[in-house]
Design a protein around this nucleic acid. Sequence first.
DNA 1: TAGATTGTTAATCGATTAACAATC
DNA 2: TAGATTGTTAATCGATTAACAATC
Lengths: 213, 213
Amino acid sequence: MEKKVSKSVLKRLPTYLAHLKSIQDAESPYISATALANALGMGEVQVRKDLAMVSDGGRPKIGYPRETLIADIEQFLGYDNTTDAILIGVGKLGQALMCYKGFDEYGLNILAGFDRHPETKHIDNGKPVYHLDQLESFCRGHKVLMGIITVPQEAAQNVCDMLIRCGIKAIWSFAPGHLEVPEGVMVHNENMATSLAVLSVHLQAQMREKKEK
Amino acid sequence: MEKKVSKSVLKRLPTYLAHLKSIQDAESPYISATALANALGMGEVQVRKDLAMVSDGGRPKIGYPRETLIADIEQFLGYDNTTDAILIGVGKLGQALMCYKGFDEYGLNILAGFDRHPETKHIDNGKPVYHLDQLESFCRGHKVLMGIITVPQEAAQNVCDMLIRCGIKAIWSFAPGHLEVPEGVMVHNENMATSLAVLSVHLQAQMREKKEK
DNA sequence: TAGATTGTTAATCGATTAACAATC
DNA sequence: TAGATTGTTAATCGATTAACAATC
């Protein structure tokens, strides 16, 4: 356990975690890699290997104790100690994210939103919205390391540069374009266009198939 | 051009497209794979190979005519003819997606939203919100093939089953869990948890590094 | 012609899958 | 013991990168 884990493994871990949590009231307190794989439609060898990366609680014939496995994955993903984040661009999407309660489970805590026109924005759950001018002092003061970008594409790189000046090390961007960042800063693009591309091409293939019959 | 394209290539295409569109007023009407690669921080061989999959307009020494390339990628991704979709679960996220104007560019058109309590929901841009009871007749009537799921995890599989009964072939889900679907139907999970996992692990590594110094 | 760029063919790398030994 | 399951080692597969020939 605790070896170097590739990005592909990393991306599968939350899926396991979600499933493990969803069956917490099951009969047995144990679950095998095989059972997990079947439930998620994945290869059992892959699941077993992935689990071996983050846990060492597996026992032949029995499987993994569910609670321990959940704890191991959460610890590995850093969900056990919360990450503070700020969000820039309090439009509809920004508001949706700020109000989403599920992030607690992932150890994410959005402290505040920032916007060019904070006075017109209101967040249902009472989280504050500040003017962009206050970004740097807030980030430094609260030692914030993660920034969420939900501004239009035109403003994204600009906002990104600001975040970097504020000491942000991880950026979660919902703007469709590429962002230029220095080394040591990680950007993850929540790329809706990518998802649509995959689905769109699938539908095209489907329709072509149908026609040919 | 028009060969079988792997998923990894598919996922990169929207990135190229976005960049190409963002520089439409550049001096030259041509762009080389090298230039694209540099702008996006990618390997130039990879970009060239990707482009070769969808276009045949590249000319040595000159590069690709930008407009043609854009058209080729859009055609390949099926962005040129619009896909009609419906959305289920008109909460904050659902509303944000229904109001997002950028989807036009990807050929996606969200016709309507469906909800268990449509009377309490209102969409800014006037798109209709219907009761779930009307889902099947609407989908059949409008020959809708794509469904977007923005309901809480507990309801997701249920809604998913409904969509399949309505003849939906592509599902874009924002619920965090795994969805069970029959063959021929594609699910794409917009998995926020995955993104967070990648960023979270990066931050952990960063902090560990800092401590060690 | 020389140089930049394309597209293809071969080599490398990494991730997935298969085979198998270990263990409860 | 027999069978299920783990974890590891080897084989396969696919995707990326490197090398090179073709072309404007």
